[in-house]
Simulated scan of single mutants.
Amino acid sequence: MRFGMFIPQGWRLDLVGIDPADQWKTMSDLARRLDRNDAWESLWVYDHFHTTPDPLPEATHEAWTLMSAFAAITDRVRLGQMCTCMSYREPTYLAKVAATVDVISGGRVEMGIGGGWYEHEWRAYGYGFPSAGDRLGRLREGVEIFRQMWTTGSATLDGKHYQVDGALCHPQPLQTTSAENRIPMWIAGGGEKVTLKIAAKYADYTNFDGSLDGFKNKSSVLEGHCKDIGRDFSAITRSANYNVMIGENDAQVQDRLAFYEDLMIKGGLPKERAAEMRANMATQPAVGTPEQIVAMFEQLQDAGMTYAVTYFAEAAYDTSGIELFEREVIPALAAK
């Protein structure tokens, strides 16, 4: 199994209490830490502008600015976003941005892409909030533009949502030498009628429901779409995201959950809402002791989930949970 980790960037109230002048150091120190440890294949950020679950006046650092900065300060670890919202940037522009970051990084970009969902954010930034059909239509046309720009150096498309005519992409991404060798495309989301159909055609990686039953169901739907278009289902790596609350024993796990609840309150959530979030977090698959988390991942691995992207809510303040995960979870699964 392969592993990635989200760097706290504020979106999930995970930089609360850290002076804005010190937040980049917090993020960059964690990025360098991952870069030094080859147990981690990738680092990730979210593409959002406002905090969740509510928009609050706390930092949310912009994803592609961070991508460029991480590209410059790391040497090995791969760099992804889970996931970039197609409609927040024109796909021609986004393809150029990703190509530039790929060059800066020496060929380490992973393109996570999706249709977008955070309505308050869309409207606040003046994007409106198109129907789900239009958002997914933009996703479909946008990934086609990516494919053309990264493999041929230009794109032309007369689509419903995007019209481009000879948009150039030079320099080419360093990863691009052919249609089979380019910036990897992660299609995020589990919509069965549209998103997974787009994934069947374009994705190198998918990212959807990480529960065992949910993962099996989405995988089955994806496999059906692959059969319909004659694509090899096994060519797509299936991944999922996991909120990790790990402890040597249940008492330590409860301490982490309590810290998480307190962090939400400090970020500005009402106590009742923070308690709800703690209760929800406690039900997540990757909450428990190392032995429990390894057993959970083994079941998912048997179902075909081979790439886990992890999130540690306390990472900006305390790396002991990350260290425990590195010491006892990753080695137990890395060779399987």
Rank of each mutant, 00 (worst) to 15 (best):
G4L: 01
M5G: 13
F6R: 10
F6A: 04
I7E: 02
G17N: 09
A21M: 04
A21W: 05
Q23M: 08
W24P: 07
D29R: 07
L30Q: 13
A31W: 01
R33S: 12
D35N: 07
D35C: 05
R36G: 15
E41W: 04
T60S: 15
W64M: 14
V77R: 12
V77L: 11
L79R: 05
L79I: 15
C83R: 09
S87G: 08
R89G: 03
A95H: 02
A98Y: 02
T100H: 04
V101Q: 06
D102W: 13
I104L: 15
S105E: 01
R108Y: 02
V109I: 15
V109L: 08
E110K: 14
I113N: 09
G116F: 03
Y118N: 07
H120Q: 11
W122S: 05
W122F: 15
W122L: 06
A124P: 10
Y125I: 00
G128F: 00
F129G: 14
S131Y: 11
R135F: 03
G142L: 05
G142W: 06
G142C: 09
E144S: 10
I145F: 07
T156A: 12
H161T: 06
Y162G: 13
Q163E: 05
A167L: 07
C169D: 03
P173I: 01
Q175E: 04
T177S: 15
A179P: 08
I183V: 15
P184N: 07
M185A: 09
I187Y: 05
G190P: 03
G191Y: 02
K193P: 06
K197N: 13
I198R: 10
A200E: 04
Y205E: 05
D209S: 14
S211P: 02
D213K: 12
G214I: 00
K216N: 13
S219H: 06
V221F: 08
E223C: 10
E223N: 13
E223H: 13
E223Q: 14
K227V: 04
D228E: 15
G230R: 07
R231P: 05
D232S: 11
S234M: 06
S239H: 01
M245V: 12
I246Y: 04
I246A: 04
G247R: 11
E248S: 14
D250I: 05
Q252S: 12
V253L: 10
R256G: 12
L257C: 04
G268M: 00
L269E: 01
P270M: 03
K271E: 14
K271Y: 07
A275N: 08
A279E: 13
Q284Y: 04
Q284H: 06
Q292G: 09
A295D: 12
E298Y: 03
Q301K: 14
D302F: 05
D302T: 14
A303W: 09
M305V: 02
T306K: 06
E314L: 02
A315F: 01
Y317R: 06
D318T: 00
T319D: 12
T319K: 14
I322D: 02
I322V: 15
E323V: 11
E323P: 10
E323D: 14
I330M: 08
A332M: 02
A332H: 00
L333Y: 01
A334Q: 13
A334F: 06
K336R: 15
